[in-house]
Amino acid sequence: MPSEPITKIRSNAFTLREPNIDTDQIIPARFLTTTERGALADACFRDWRFDDDGQPNGHPLNARDPETARILIAGDNFGCGSSREHAPWALKDFGFDAVITSRAADIFKSNALKNGLVVCEVDEASHAALLDRAGEPVEVNVIDQTVTYGNNQASFKLEPFARTCLIEGVDPMGYILGQSAAIARFEKGRAA
């Protein structure tokens, strides 16, 4: 289904500096038994946010304002590990609209962009500077592929089709279904 176009995200930065934050941290496997979508906010970073007795702890994620801190600045190699799409679903449900990092894992990036979670991979110097800007305003421009913070600007590069899908609300399933004739030809060619 076509989605709402996403062209610009303005919000405050929320930072998680740790490198190699894997998708088991973003959403522990015991929450993967769901057959639905849209209810994973509680599961997001669950074991970082709650103690063994089930009480919320002092992690900054629990003090974050989901209305104003919607841009996550995260350490290198973010989203590594499992291919679970529940990871970007959980981040979206928790109230993040963009992740800025120096490098995101391939499958995570692909999954995130299909769910309107913009993943911006910026150069290391900008990344380091952004990690020091918790709480400060950041703007992600999907059209120009820039991240603006203070008087600085960093650029990132989205896969062109994923970018088009974001800014025009294109539905990838609809796009592939539009190639049905080519798929049928391919199948016929192999059977011959």
Binding site: S83, S110, K114, N115, P172, I176, I183
Partner: peptide
Amino acid sequence: FGIGTTEVGHVLATQSLLQRKP
């Protein structure tokens, strides 16, 4: 290779997948 759930839907419906050459 591994894929996400949206892509599982693409393959179920079209037996095809959009992929950039790695």
